[in-house]
Amino acid sequence: MKTKIALITGGYTGEAEVSFKSAAFVQAQLDKEKYEVYPITITLDTWFYVTEAGIKISVNRENFSLDIDGHIVTFDVAFIILHGSPGEDGRLQGYFDMIGLPYTSCDALTSALTMNKGYTKAIVRDIQDLYVANSVLLFATHRSDAPHIVQQNLTLPLFVKPNAGGSSIGMSKVKASSDLQVALDKAFDAANTGAQVLVEEFVTGREFSQGIFRNAEGELIVLPATEVRTTREFFDFEAKYVAGLTEEITPADLTADQQERASRIIRDIYVRLNCKGMVRVDFFLETGTDKFYFIEINTIPGQTAQSFIPQQVRALGMKEGDFYAELIEAAISSAPKLQK
């Protein structure tokens, strides 16, 4: 009997467009002889599945089932490929925990925590050989006085970004004080990101992104790193998703010592944050010091053919379909059993 997969996509933010592309790629890679895949779209208004005949079927939210022509479809596991809220911030994970449906991502607490960049930095900052840039976390109550707070505590240039956003939406690099207010307003007003803003001092160096996952046997596997070189001011939304603006080198050109150190740091981050499934850690290697600076962790990384994780999976010598199968089997085998 095939394993029934609810492939979760869509979402409440501007990242929904990327989620649809990621989910389509994952579905194309999964073994159709082994898995029966149902793409489930989640929006602010509705949760639904579209049949091959084009009929939209609403999800029964009581038990996350579908009624297709009188046949009730339930699922063995949810494969969450929903970037941003509610798939990356713990909301869906909490719901799935309550109904007892296994899922492929980090749990509700870790997802909610890691969606908050400022809180995450506070937890990982004492990991050996990992550094974090000086920063301030601004809440809505700070908005009127935000430029003054930033200028009192930090030195230009700065990165200004929504504290709970993704895909660099609402993010700016600020090199002059006169540009700070516009950048702060842009970050505060980014949709569905919690009206919190993180402002960090700029770190000069090479930028990398590196994935890690736990396989069906429970082993932690660190993927090869990707170096990001962009013609843009920084790795913003356009740099991530417009062809030709960024060069991505996988595997990255790192020394043996740098590879070993990065691998150890990423494993420590994964364990410290109690991650599950696959995650991706972004970091800088500072020019002149060889120090690794933490940028952020992404618990639902992009999964288009050009995305970092698929690149790294291929560099490891693994097929994407086998990689996704590992995540599915690990989620099913490690799922807690509800006591009734």
Rank of each mutant, 00 (worst) to 15 (best):
V50W: 00
I221L: 06
F237H: 08
G166E: 02
T304A: 05
F188T: 10
T104A: 05
T114Y: 04
V199P: 08
V150H: 07
I81T: 11
L327Y: 07
L30V: 05
I8K: 07
K32N: 15
K34F: 10
A262D: 06
E200C: 06
D282V: 00
D282N: 06
D268T: 14
Q152V: 04
D185A: 08
A164H: 09
T255F: 07
L158E: 12
T41N: 03
Q152K: 12
E260M: 14
F284E: 09
Y324M: 00
V160R: 11
K21Y: 00
P157M: 13
A140C: 02
G94W: 00
K56L: 08
D236F: 04
K21T: 01
E233A: 15
T141S: 14
G11Y: 12
L130D: 05
T226R: 03
V199G: 08
P86M: 06
P147S: 15
N63A: 14
N60Q: 14
E52L: 07
V174K: 05
A305K: 13
G118E: 04
L154F: 04
F283E: 00
L138D: 07
D185L: 10
F234Y: 01
A331R: 01
S209A: 15
I80D: 08
R229C: 12
V132T: 13
T74F: 01
K340V: 14
N163W: 00
V136Q: 01
F139Q: 14
F79V: 09
F48A: 06
D189L: 14
F79N: 01
G165Q: 04
V271S: 09
Q258H: 06
H148K: 15
L327F: 07
T46Q: 15
D268Y: 00
Q306S: 13
T226D: 06
Y119A: 15
F75Y: 08
A16T: 14
L180A: 02
G100R: 13
Y293Q: 07
K21D: 05
S307A: 14
G170K: 02
Y49G: 05
I295A: 06
V160Y: 12
F294R: 11
R143K: 13
A239K: 02
F188K: 09
D69N: 13
S22A: 03
G288C: 14
Q210P: 01
D253N: 11
E248P: 11
Q210N: 00
H148I: 10
A216Q: 14
T246Q: 09
F202T: 07
P224G: 03
D236Y: 00
I332E: 05
T104P: 02
R272G: 09
Q151A: 10
I55F: 00
R91H: 13
G317W: 05
L220R: 02
R61Y: 03
D236I: 03
F294V: 10
M278F: 01
L285K: 10
Q196S: 13
G277L: 02
R280G: 03
I269S: 02
Y12W: 15
I81C: 11
Y131D: 06
H71F: 12
L158F: 11
E233D: 14
I169T: 10
D253S: 08
A243L: 04
P102M: 01
A191V: 11
F20I: 04
I265F: 05
K240I: 04
T13I: 06
N215G: 00
V222E: 03
V18C: 01
L101C: 04
I309V: 15
G170V: 08
V59D: 08
F48K: 01
A239S: 10
N134G: 11
E233H: 13
L92H: 02
R280T: 11
